[in-house]
């Protein structure tokens, strides 16, 4: 008897993370995904730790050295106010990544919650939620964001807090697609026989939702969430480029590219807009590679190639 319990404990430890271990193993084998992950880690470290090593941190204005091309002192040159572009690129990265992650977390939370409620309770709840989502989906995202940004500009939010407004806006636009996905998953899951079993056991709705349904959509959430970070970063750039997102003096990759708006800067000072452009490009493509890799790793059957 003693031996069996020891064995039980041993097996328990061995089994605990089995499912996710397999996923991880498959992910590590995927070269594209690992390249993406590597780039992402690099960009994170670059943005989060980089500014500590820069002598030009905190937006030091230098009236003498404006619009300098890249040199030994300023590796990526300076902008119209004499600020170091490399340092600004790193600080902007913090903002852009924060907005991207924050918007993803919020829209995944809202989308999952509403999708689960719609799929599980059906009827009138479903109607209200899904019709709202339909309405949101009929309006093109970008104009909607512009309108919201214009309305929110009225509120005189301080520049350093604009990023939170942007996050909220992006998640309001972004939840509907995810809610539909989650709802359809729940609709198919709830007809599985093990859900009938929870009914015959007389389990509470809470347990059915959180123990039986939610864990089964976690893989979906991870994949969709990862991919949506890239989208959120792009949307933030677009908004900021138009001056409706994060506004100067707070830097974001989007409002840095705004420099390309002026013909002189565009033709003669490429160091102002190429670095943020490359940063956005690399970040989004890395996220998408990682997201695709995760999807294949979590469900090998879905592999299209």
């Amino acid at each position: 008897m003693e031996e069996t319990t020891v064995q039980t404990e041993h097996m328990a430890k061995y089994r605990k993370s089995n499912l996710w271990k397999q996923v991880f193993r498959r992910l590590v084998k995927n070269k594209m995904a690992m390249t993406g992950l590597g780039f992402l880690i690099f960009i994170f470290v670059f943005c989060m730790i980089g500014p500590f090593f820069s002598p030009y941190a905190n937006g030091g204005v230098d009236a003498i050295n404006i619009n300098q091309p890249p040199s030994a002192e300023h590796w990526l040159g300076t902008d119209a106010l004499g600020r170091d572009v490399l340092t600004r690129l790193m600080e902007a990265g913090r903002i852009s990544l924060t907005v991207g992650l924050g918007a993803m977390v919020m829209s995944v939370f809202i989308g999952t919650l509403l999708g689960v409620l719609a799929g599980f309770y059906q009827g009138i709840v479903d109607q209200i939620i899904m019709r709202t989502a339909d309405v949101l989906m009929t309006i093109p995202g970008l104009p909607l964001l512009f309108i919201m940004a214009a309305v929110m500009s009225e509120w005189k939010v301080p520049a350093e807090n604009r990023l939170y407004i942007v996050m909220v806006m992006l998640s309001i636009v972004g939840w509907s697609g995810l809610a539909r996905l989650v709802r359809s998953q729940i609709l198919s899951l709830r007809e599985r026989e093990y859900m009938h079993a929870t009914e015959s056991l007389g389990l509470r709705d809470r347990r059915k939702l959180f123990v039986h349904l939610l864990p089964n959509i976690v893989p979906l959430l991870i994949v969709v969430g990862t991919l949506s970070v890239g989208g959120a970063i792009l949307s933030e750039s677009v908004l900021s480029y138009f001056g409706l997102g994060v506004v100067p003096p707070t830097a974001s990759w989007g409002n840095m590219i705004n420099a390309a708006n002026s013909l002189i800067d565009f033709q003669n000072r490429p160091w102002l807009w190429i670095p943020p452009g490359v940063a956005i490009f690399l970040t989004v493509i890395s996220i998408n590679l990682l997201g695709d890799g995760l999807r294949d790793a979590i469900d090998p059957k879905m592999k299209s190639r």
Binding site: R192, Y194, S200
Partner: peptide, 14 residues
């Protein structure tokens, strides 16, 4: 209730 299909009557993640 004991279900017919022993494969689909157990939640694969539990």
């Amino acid at each position: 209730f004991v279900f017919q299909d022993p494969f689909s009557s157990l939640n694969p993640r539990i």
